[in-house]
Design a binder for these strands. Structure first.
Lengths: 329, 329
DNA sequence: CTGAAAGCGCTAACAC
DNA sequence: GTGTTAGCGCTTTCAG
């Protein structure tokens, strides 16, 4: 392994000068700088990030803890953090909690001493635990807020309202919400927003049992809807996968979309590369949310009363899967 | 920040003893060990991973560089590495190359000095570049092999052969392969295996233009197939997303699956949570591949002529989307 | 603009 | 079993 000292010797300068030449080029004479750079290049030298971190006190790493990578919702967030970090040469230290509170704590503890800050995506730990963590290092939550801590949330409630307004505007009065994942914080937000929007609009919302974000779940729900002969004329699914299942299931049962029933998703179908059978959906800028979280975590320690909050707006994309209900046609 | 020295003082021992008590419990008297543990707990102390890494020479981190997280193929591999690593308290340092060779090198260089080894998933860099890297630290490739370097490959060719044998066995003679992503190493493997299998079996393989792994691509291909009135009676798509698009597109055009045309995928549909409309597919143990890569990278430096290779077998799952061709019924 | 010296927090011989 | 003494490779005052 070649050390900075080796490069320094080869360039005929002290290690301090070599260090400066490499890390703070402007603090060194142009000629010296070049000599060092040349020596370093020739010897295939790279500054040892670990040693650097030990002296400077920061690692250039940001820890990102996600519940899982299997749900397509999360990878874009990680990508967002990574991209934002890449601008300054930083990297993402990843943790997958599997939605286990214990694992989440464990990961946080492990990552804690090797990162400059932690981005917790949809954390399952309690507020108190998160606060403890935040005392040791900068912490930002994504897709959940905790009193007193900085956070980034996608404005899904706002988007849901917008989506519901769209459906109501088309004339729908009996709308169903197929939500999930079971027990999630975000799902409660969505449900509440949906209910309020629909009821305020003079409609009636049927909240179906929450399901996991899978095509099969949508398929099953479609069957359920058809069998129970629900009077609903429109369904909002929380996940594209679920929507896809719904679409296939309803069509399979002989229902036409949107003639017989309208369908919409409260997340982004493009994650699965589907834009074609024109599906009305909420575009959710997950990557931006990740980038925003990264920015927050690297800002000054938010030791204030009013922690910064970023609310990332969604965008309603209206396509062919929504239309006026049958009786209105 | 509390340091080990602080804990040691509180426990009335030297730092070395405190260090041992925490890192190598069996080298210390039970009573001492407990005293140190207690002090550490009370003070909320955690060993500083950076300092530790500097002295021991290893970080407990493994770098994983993937082309993207948007393709559902890759996240499971990352998860596999992470899980395998978690057994020993390690973590994953993530890099997303965006399929850019330059970015890949850059990331490798950045991560190089902070990890114990590097897992390169479907790397785009040339063999020479990879070898250079491998001289500096343990490197394992996944989903691609490079002469002289350890690697993990999913035995997709084997799986493709099996899948084709299944189709041929059903009586299909005109089979199409819808592959991609364009230009990928793995796609060439698949195409070659498919062609050989089909031709050896007395059939004819139509290789369609490679497409990105998206539902829309399948939809477009379906249209294409129908319009061109291909005589094919079975289609193998390389991606579940593509298959899904194909399924929807063909059904939309009035074709029945599998009565009129059989469909199969050379990757795993369960990634999108779809098992219901029974789709014949190759189960690809991506997570295991990641875990295997992790194991390889942590083994002794493979400075040998014959680098270890792991071939992860796929498993053909036959479901309802494949049946004998129309004329055979 | 450059060099010397003092650590960052921890582990690892090496004695006792 | 435990303490002492050196560093790991780098950055950073502090002088010059």
């Amino acid at each position: 392994m070649v050390r900075l000292a080796d490069v320094a010797r080869a360039a005929g300068v002290s290690t301090s000068t070599a260090s400066r030449a490499l890390s703070r080029p402007d603090m060194v004479a142009a000629e010296t700088r070049e000599r060092v750079a040349k020596a370093a290049a020739e010897m295939g030298f790279t500054l040892n990030a670990t040693a650097r971190a030990l002296t400077t006190g920061h690692t250039g790493l940001v820890g990102v803890i996600v519940p899982t990578l299997a749900n397509p919702f999360f990878p874009p967030i990680v990508t967002g953090v990574q991209e934002s970090l890449a601008e300054t040469g930083g990297n993402v230290l990843l943790g997958v909690s599997d939605r286990s509170e214990e694992r989440e704590r464990e990961l946080a503890a492990q990552l804690g001493s090797r990162v400059d800050g932690l981005v917790l995506v949809a954390p399952v730990s309690g507020d108190a635990t998160l606060h403890e963590l935040a005392e040791r290092l900068p912490v930002v939550t994504v897709d959940r807020t905790t009193p007193g801590l900085p956070g980034v949330v996608v404005d899904t409630p706002g988007g849901v309202r917008e989506l519901m307004a769209h459906l109501l505007g088309l004339g729908h009065r009996h709308i169903a919400y197929l939500g999930g994942p079971p027990g999630s914080w975000m799902d409660r937000q969505r449900t509440r927003a949906a209910r309020k929007a629909v009821e305020d609009g003079g409609g009636e919302l049927t909240v179906l049992d929450p399901v996991p974000p899978q095509v099969d779940a949508g398929l099953a729900a479609a069957e359920h809807l058809v069998r129970r002969a629900e009077r609903v004329t429109a369904v909002m699914a929380y996940s594209s996968y679920v929507l896809l299942g719904l679409l296939m299931g309803l069509r399979g049962a002989g229902l036409r979309v949107p003639e017989d029933i309208s369908l919409a998703a409260s997340d982004d179908l493009t994650v699965i590369g589907m834009t074609q059978p024109g599906t009305t959906a909420l575009h959710v800028p997950l990557q931006e949310a990740g980038a925003a979280a990264c920015r927050l975590v690297r800002e000054a320690p938010h030791t204030g009363e009013r922690p910064p909050r970023v609310r990332v707006p969604t965008r309603l994309v209206v396509r062919g899967s929504t239309a006026p209900p049958p009786e209105k046609r």
